[in-house]
Design a binder for these strands. Structure first.
Length: 554
RNA sequence: UGGGAUGUCGCCAAGUUGGUUAAGGCACAGGACUUUGACUCCUGCAUUCGUGGGUUCAAAUCCCGCCAUCCCAGCCA
């Protein structure tokens, strides 16, 4: 259709379904979706997929998307989460249709529908306790038996249900069940509970209600009330679809929405379990839900990831029904891709080692003009102070270089990015045998534009003036590596059934270039460092994106 | 023989009204370029579509059997 110019054809089976619907004229060609979180926690990268799928599907077909808080369980939910969810959705760049919605706003209507079902003989009040119900409900392989209360008269059911609402019964004493089929091989269809009693204060309706609808009853009605056409959800609700359709049919909804399930997003070495993320916060392993190492939307934001990068990631991953786990490297690729031309780049020495240019005057300071982003001239230049004492990244110097190492080592020449070519003469170690200082001499007239500038050197490294550099603390990794990856790491340890990689929790102190007054440093968000990776294959290099925001946070 | 779903390169994932050599991206490898070993640019990377049969001139696509994995027995969502 409109993707002649799209370089990437994102795979998405939902599009096919919608296009089919549109051809048949279903829903009058309209597409109306919704993102329906339960306000009981912070959003993570997995939710980001749901958000993108819901909003982008609507966007693609010129439709609308609601934000709806599915607040049908007062004991689990809190307004605390509502704000953070709205903030995260907005940050991802989406606008929902009108005001945010709340399932609790439809409680009265839902109640009416329940009464309607009772009148049709499609729902009954059941007095069985949860324990007793277990015996009636059967198992996965054995059919269930009808509740002895299923035969109550409509009149009695109406009366009892009204009294449930009136608060005459205590929690758990009675429920309203859908009257469907105890023989069904689908457990969801064996007379599921559609209303239960909770004498609890709801975060929005307060004490107005003491009966609350169950998800399976409430959700299809919420969708119907809002005029949703395509109700997108994750795979585990596949078994619920017959019930979803049953509710809509029995409630005689005219243009019933269609539930479509897709696989949730899993990332390698990341957890998206609320329980585990909460553990990290509670145990102070991280500083909070928005710690830059967390896979939460707010964590990603703090880490310096852009909404554009996350959206493009979700699009590229595609939407299908096969359970999958996407390589974290793919997310990183999308972030680099988005950041590449967008932001100025500054130099840094994350694990610093001091370099002294012995033939450079002690009191001299040159301000060298360096491009902010070689690939995007529009980002201009900045002036970076160059002095006799510098810091370079520890990985850019080696006492005993392996074969193809062509950065700094004794006897070698390297280019200090944007500055001189220097010759490494010697180095000094401290009592622990660690490299303490490296001594170099700069080669004259090798600055950009000077006559010896084209002198060939194989290595180019980053540097920061020791006098001017700004100290930062930085995570060794930009996110937590958990579980599988940690299992391969000798430094990993277990915490409440969760494997953590110690390295991922450690921070190092380093330096970044000073902000230059004229250059509005707040726009310099990212430091890019190419260096020898200590933790993967030897001689392997990679480019790391570090957010200064996250660097300062720790 | 509970029910539902999924299985295409290390990771995602097109392709499923059967029709030449099975898209694309990530990762990886090799080369060119390079004042970031990045970026960019070339090149390579599944005779094979979970598996065994069958139908057919022709199957990843149709049929049958089998296997593997995931989900379902909350008065959670």
């Amino acid at each position: 259709m409109n993707d002649m110019n799209d370089t990437v054809m994102a795979s998405n089976f939902i599009h096919n379904i919608i296009e089919e619907d549109n051809e048949k004229g279903a829903y009058g060609g309209k597409v109306y979706t919704r993102f329906p979180p339960e306000p009981n926690g912070y959003l993570h990268i997995g939710h980001a997929k749901a958000i993108c799928v819901d909003f982008m599907t609507a966007e693609k077909y010129g439709g609308k998307c609601n934000l709806r808080f599915d607040d049908t369980n007062p004991v689990k939910e809190d307004t605390e989460y509502v704000d953070s969810i709205m903030e995260d959705v907005k940050w991802l760049g989406f606008s929902w249709e009108g005001e945010e919605r709340y399932a609790s706003d439809y409680f009265e209507k839902m109640y009416d529908y329940a009464v309607f079902l009772i009148k049709k003989g499609k729902a009954y009040v059941c007095d069985l306790s949860p324990e007793e119900w277990k015996e009636y409900k059967g198992t996965l392989t054995e059919p269930g038996r009808k509740s002895p209360y299923a035969s109550r008269s409509v009149r009695e059911n109406l009366d009892l249900f009204a009294r449930m609402r009136a608060g005459e019964f205590s929690d758990g004493e009675r429920v309203l069940r859908a009257n469907i089929d105890m023989q069904s091989p689908n457990m969801n269809m064996r007379d599921p509970v559609i209303y239960r009693i909770y004498h609890a204060t709801h975060h929005r309706t307060g004490d107005k209600w003491c009966i609350y609808p169950m998800y399976d009853f409430a959700h299809p009605l919420e969708d119907a009330i809002e005029g949703i056409t395509h109700s997108l959800c994750t795979l585990e609700f596949e078994d619920h679809r017959p019930l979803y359709d049953w509710v809509l049919r029995e409630c005689e909804i005219e243009q019933p929405p269609k539930q479509i399930e897709f696989a949730r997003l899993e990332l390698t070495n990341n957890v998206t379990s609320k329980r585990k993320l909460k553990l990290l916060v509670d145990e102070h392993i991280v500083d909070g839900w928005d710690d830059p190492r967390m896979p939460t939307v707010s964590g990603l934001r703090a880490r310096g990831y852009t909404p554009e990068a996350i959206r493009s990631f979700i699009e590229k991953v595609g939407v299908s029904k096969s359970k999958s786990e996407v390589d974290y490297a793919f997310l990183e690729y999308c972030v680099r891709e988005d950041l590449k031309l967008k932001y100025p780049r500054v130099m840094a020495a994350i694990e610093p080692i001091k370099v002294i240019i012995t033939n450079y005057p002690e009191d001299k300071c040159e301000y060298l003009e360096i491009e902010n982003n070689k690939e995007n001239e529009a980002l201009g230049t900045r002036k970076v102070p160059f002095t006799r004492e510098l810091y370079i990244d520890r990985t850019d110097f080696m006492e005993e270089p392996p074969k193809k190492y062509f950065r700094m080592f004794k006897g070698n020449n390297v280019r200090l990015m944007g500055a001189y070519i220097v010759h490494c003469d010697d180095f000094k170690k401290n009592e622990n045998g660690e490299i303490e200082e490296v001594y170099c001499t700069y080669i004259e007239k090798t600055k950009s534009g000077e006559e010896n500038a084209d002198m060939k050197v194989k290595g180019v490294i980053q540097w920061v003036s020791a006098k001017h550099g700004i100290p930062v603390k930085c995570n060794l990794y930009d996110h937590l590596f958990l579980e599988k990856d940690a299992a391969n790491d000798e430094n990993s340890y277990e915490k409440d059934g969760m494997l953590l990689n110690r390295c991922s929790l450690e921070t190092v102190s380093g330096f970044v270039e000073p902000y230059c007054e004229e250059s509005e440093f707040d726009k310099f968000q990212f430091v890019r460092i190419g260096y020898f990776c200590k933790n993967t294959k030897e001689n392997n290099t990679f480019n790391r994106v570090v957010s200064l925001k996250s660097s300062f946070k720790i």
